[in-house]
């Protein structure tokens, strides 16, 4: 009986906490979901952003690591800003969720990047990837879609014979090729440049089997045309690189600034 009561007690504390937080008069929120980024300690990320945002208008930051949870949050609310990948945004638009791009993230002056399928030089052709492991960071669905794009129509049939190994970071995926845990890797171009610094020998051993189309790093989107309240929040985001603490937060997301789309 004691055990049942204690379970009930803990459960009630959880539910009450959840309900109270959900309806607390806080916010607006910045919601974040992007499995392509390296960051996976949401407590640090949230802490970093919250400290900055509270001082700049009392906003709050909410990262998600479950796609479905993030999508439910979008459907249920209006007036917030959502940080996500362009790939994800397009998928949501196809589901008739009317997200609109407000800002795009920049890194060293660029707003777009390509994903590269790289392998050791003895793999001369994508057809050699049949029955091999390809490593990549992100969700399996995402890696599949990038791979599909790189392989093109001619080699699309190969997909079913490729095993995707999901690793925590881009750099893990490329190093997995170098150390023989995977035959090829999907990574951002910038990650390959990073490998050149981390392990030049491994970098020399790799070559590109194909690249994806260019795509935005990260997108800040809203559900409707931003009103004044949302514009204020977007402005805060846009100005983050101006402060050291803000720039550090953005770096954790893999970008160093924002730009409005013309």
């Amino acid at each position: 009986m004691k055990r049942i009561l204690s379970v009930l007690f803990i459960f009630s504390v959880f539910v009450t906490g959840a309900y109270r937080s959900a309806y607390a008069d806080e916010g607006p929120f910045i919601y974040f979901y992007n499995p392509e980024t390296n960051i996976n300690n949401f407590a640090s990320l949230k802490r970093g952003f919250d400290v900055y945002l509270v001082d700049h208008g009392g906003y709050l930051f909410q990262p998600f690591d479950i796609k479905e949870t993030f999508e439910s949050a979008i459907q249920g609310k209006k007036g917030d800003v959502y940080l996500l990948s362009n790939w994800h945004l397009k998928a949501l638009q196809q589901k008739n969720i009317p997200l609109k791009i407000a800002l795009v993230g920049t890194s060293k002056g660029n707003t777009m990047q390509r994903k590269v399928l790289s392998a050791k030089k003895d793999i001369t052709d994508v057809s050699m990837l049949k029955n091999t492991v390809v490593a990549g960071a992100g969700s399996e669905e995402y890696i599949q879609s990038v791979l599909k794009q790189i392989l093109g129509k001619d080699q699309e049939a190969l997909l079913k014979d490729i095993k995707i190994l999901i690793v925590p970071k881009d750099i893990d995926a490329i190093m997995a090729v170098g150390f023989g845990m995977a035959t090829a890797a999907i990574s951002a171009e910038s990650s390959l440049e990073k490998l050149a610094m981390i392990n030049p020998n491994q970098h020399r051993e790799l070559h590109s089997l194909g690249v994806s189309e260019k795509d935005y790093f990260l997108i800040a989107a809203t559900l409707k045309k931003p009103d004044q309240k949302e514009e204020q929040l977007l402005e805060v985001l846009r100005k983050m690189p101006d402060a050291d603490a803000g720039e550090e937060n953005l770096r954790m997301l893999g970008i160093d600034g924002w730009r409005a789309l013309q």
Partner: peptide, 14 residues
């Protein structure tokens, strides 16, 4: 500093 975006977690003093 260029390596910062390869970090999964950054823990501060707070």
């Amino acid at each position: 500093k260029d390596a910062l975006d390869s970090i999964n977690k950054v823990v501060g003093c707070e």
